[in-house]
Design a protein around this nucleic acid. Structure first.
Length: 505
RNA sequence: GGCCCGCUAGCUCAAUUGGCAGAGCAACUGACUCUUAAUCAGUAGGUUGAAGGUUCGAUUCCUUUGCGGGUCACCA
């Protein structure tokens, strides 16, 4: 038995009264003839016509406000398409019907209302009720939320803001905060736009395993699960990369996947344990080709979603109507810190040079990690306008092909916007012997018994030995892109149900 | 995982050096036939996240703990 609040007990009492009166508070079927938007548009279309037939409509929606005024009552209802005001008048439906509404209907209930669309004296398009019915009684009141339209702007009053309640009870958050619903509409539009773009470029959208016997393609800790019947431990994927490249071996030249990755790591404003990734692989292309396609894709997606090629993120105008800035990683770091990592061949040497910088780091970290730290600390936050950083150290890029003239550097770039890392791409290794060596460099091991080692994916190497065309690959954090397009500061705001700790009972 | 901050009515927030826990909205009763954050009059609503301690007395001070937020660490 639920533990009901006083407010809920009042509503349960109303529910019982309805049942006693023979009214089904949860009827099976409805008689909606128009969405609110359709009814409003139909009315606006004929309003100016002389002697027009009235627009008769049966609407459905959730009651968001009620203003009883004696023998007349106003209310607003909301459906998926918008809001409209209801007008109940005792002269038309009888005083009993107005009273019945006031006595048994609450904010949050779903109602069906039939009548004709008209405009009130104060000019609001409304529905003049001739009949109404309960569609679903709400027992728990929605968090109090009122809004007011002032000069076209929606002003919210006393709305639900507590982040814990908003995320744990996202349904209530969505029900009450229309701007939150809008964020998720934009999210879906973004994913569609990416698909439109990739499809138009001839890429095939595919699906690869989420449950994997060996994880790979990124340097993250995995979640582990178990198949009972097969008595087999499995990992939730940390990237799609190794499977998508197997498809290049199989003869597909352009593939992409949009889906969920899982990483067993810390949670932050830009990290959630499960997040949405888009990766594509493109045969006969290299990282320069991928860079051009990335520019084109972002420009397309932003325009398709927002209707313009620029937008505001954290108060700054981001422009996608021009080529991205390009920064050589080594030169960028020299410029910001004076340190040339080519002059520091070992981790210890580089760490020593970094001591004078205003930055904390682990002095025992490997050299590649230190370089990545410098990028993250000194460069990343400064990349507000779209920026590519290119040519990364070999030791943090085990799947990227080295530069012809420099075996210590790989053909790789990352893309940044608004100080956020959005994507990562490189010319893929397709030399199976080189790939094997690079795995071994990373400490991958053939001995499966040793839990300390990230196992080496032998099947991936076998695939590569069948021959993989020279290719470029790309990965992007879709959630972060949505953060940009909706001007949200944390990834939780663009995930419908972000991860939260379980509450102890 | 470390550090800092928060948790008070359904929601948003107050509460003096430790001294009867309040307001607006929502709810309830009543008035009101074009209102719109409707208005007006009245009523009710609380284990102050949880447990323990100090004190005549704790929302307030101390300890432990839960959850959230920020930040650092971790993070191809």
């Amino acid at each position: 038995m639920a533990d009901y609040s006083n407010l809920e007990k009042v509503r349960l009492e109303k529910l019982n009264q309805l049942k006693d009166l023979g009214v089904d508070p949860y009827p099976r079927r409805t008689k909606r003839t128009h969405t609110i938007q359709e009814a409003t548009e139909a009315f606006l279309a004929i309003e100016k016509v002389q002697d027009h037939e009235p627009v008769q409509a049966t609407l459905t929606g959730r009651i968001r406000s009620v203003r009883p005024m004696g023998k007349v009552t106003f209310a607003h209802i909301e459906d998926g398409s918008g809001r409209i005001q209801l007008f109940f008048r005792a002269n038309d439906i009888g005083e009993d019907q107005v009273t019945f509404f006031k006595d048994h209907f609450d904010l949050g209930d779903f109602i069906q209302a039939a009548g004709k669309v008209f405009r009130t004296r104060t000019g609001e398009v409304s529905l003049w009720i001739s009949e109404y019915a309960m569609l679903a009684k709400a027992i728990t009141p929605l968090p109090a939320a009122k809004d007011q339209v002032v000069e076209g702007e929606v002003v919210q009053h006393a709305t639900l803001t507590d982040p814990e309640t908003r995320f744990r009870q996202r349904y209530a958050d969505l029900a009450v905060n229309r701007d939150v619903r809008e964020v998720f509409r934009t999210r879906t539009k973004t994913i569609r736009a990416i698909q439109h773009f990739m499809d138009s470029k001839g890429f095939l959208e595919v699906e690869t395993p989420i449950l994997q016997p060996i994880y790979g393609g990124a340097a993250a800790q995995p979640f582990i699960t178990h198949h009972n019947q097969l008595k087999q431990d499995l990992y939730l994927r940390i990237s799609f990369e190794l499977y998508l490249k197997r498809l290049l071996v199989g003869g597909f030249e352009k593939v992409y996947e949009i889906g969920r990755d899982f990483r067993n790591e810390g949670v932050s404003f830009k990290h959630n344990p499960e997040f949405t990734q888009m990766e594509f692989y493109w045969a006969y292309a290299d990282y320069q080709d991928v860079m051009s396609l990335t520019e084109e894709m972002f420009s397309f997606v932003v325009e398709e979603v927002l209707g313009t090629k620029s937008f505001t993120y954290r108060g700054q105008e981001i422009r996608l109507d021009q080529p991205w800035r390009r920064v050589d990683l080594r030169e960028g770091i020299i410029e910001q810190t004076g340190i040339d990592f080519h002059q520091h061949e070992t981790a210890a040497d580089l760490a020593k040079a970094m001591k004078s910088l205003d930055m904390e780091f682990n002095p025992k970290a490997p050299r590649g990690k230190l370089i990545d730290d410098l990028l993250g600390h000194f460069l990343e936050p400064t990349f507000i306008q779209p920026t590519f950083v290119y040519d990364y150290p070999r030791e943090i890029s085990p799947l990227a092909k080295t530069k012809e003239e420099d075996q210590g550097t790989v053909e790789r770039f990352e893309g940044f916007i608004g100080g956020l890392e959005l994507c990562n791409a490189f010319t893929e290794i397709n030399d199976p012997l080189d790939q094997e060596e690079r795995f071994l460099e990373m400490g991958r091991s053939y001995s499966e018994a040793d839990d300390e080692h990230h196992p080496l994916d032998e099947d991936y190497l076998r695939a590569m030995r069948y021959g993989m065309p020279p290719s470029g690959g790309f990965g992007m954090g879709v959630d972060r892109l949505v953060m940009l397009l909706t001007d949200q500061q944390t990834i939780r705001e663009v995930l419908l149900f972000p991860h939260l700790r379980e509450i102890d009972k």
